[in-house]
Amino acid sequence: MSKRIDAIDFNVYYSKFLAVEGVNISIEPKSVTAFIGPSGCGKTTFLRTLNRMHEVIPGARVEGKLLLDGDDIYAPGVDPVSVRSTIGMVFQRPNPFPTMSIRENVLAGIRLNGQRISKGDADTIVEKSLRGANLWNEVKDRLEKPGSGLSGGQQQRLCIARTIAVEPDVILMDEPCSALDPISTLAIEDLINEMKDQYTVVIVTHNMQQAARVSDKTAFFNIAGTGKPGKLIEYAETSTIFSTPREKATEDYVSGRFG
């Protein structure tokens, strides 16, 4: 299962402050899309609106349409909780639940929702998810140990395993490698490449090489100045963005001549 996302004239606000303005973008199913751009340009803010995580911040709201396979996730009456169970998210800093073991962390999405599953099913899900996150071989002998005892890179893969255990259609990643060393980063990039066979992946990154390595399409966000809204400047095939971008600002940014 994998779904497409279309944003139409999409504005994001924090109370009265317009943070991201006029985004029009179409994200294909079973692809990896990277958001790049300078800090504060609204990449993360926009990413968080894709699964309605934006609105857990007081005063945050949006305007415009955001279609998931044609259905507006911001239509009145849509339950944000069901949106979030369809669109999973991996955060910048690994955040396994400190009170839970590795196994419980993987099953968190199911157990926390109060679903009862048999031990056999649970074992299957744990193994499948951890294998999916390339973590199974490293932790299979210590599933009952606390998740916070793992290394940073392992914790991040545990968080990915936790996300894919609830079988979402889309996975959002907010700078998933920014706190990790190059080897863990490589492990996660490999994982992203495998994941696009099943999921729509959207990744925010500050690392342009990473965007070039993992993504099929790249979106460049920019901001005109402090206090101004962030805008989607250019969205195209990754190879185009990095070789022959249409916009001058994109070329300046990807070639390091920014500012």
């Binding site: 699964n51 995580m53 857990v56 909780v81 069901s82 979030r84 169970s85 369809t86 999973g88 998210m89 955060f91 800093r93 955040n95 639940f97 400190p98 009170t99 968190a108 999405g109 157990r111 926390l112 929702n113 109060g114 968080c159 936790r162 996300t163 609830v166």
Partner: peptide
């Protein structure tokens, strides 16, 4: 209790009262 844990729970599609009961309070 770090906000990250609440967000991690919301992002898994867990309802708020369950997040409070099963993540925030145990922590």
């Amino acid at each position: 209790v770090p906000n990250e844990l609440r967000e991690a729970s919301y992002a898994l599609g867990v309802r708020k009262w369950r997040t409070i009961l099963k993540v925030v309070i145990p922590t």
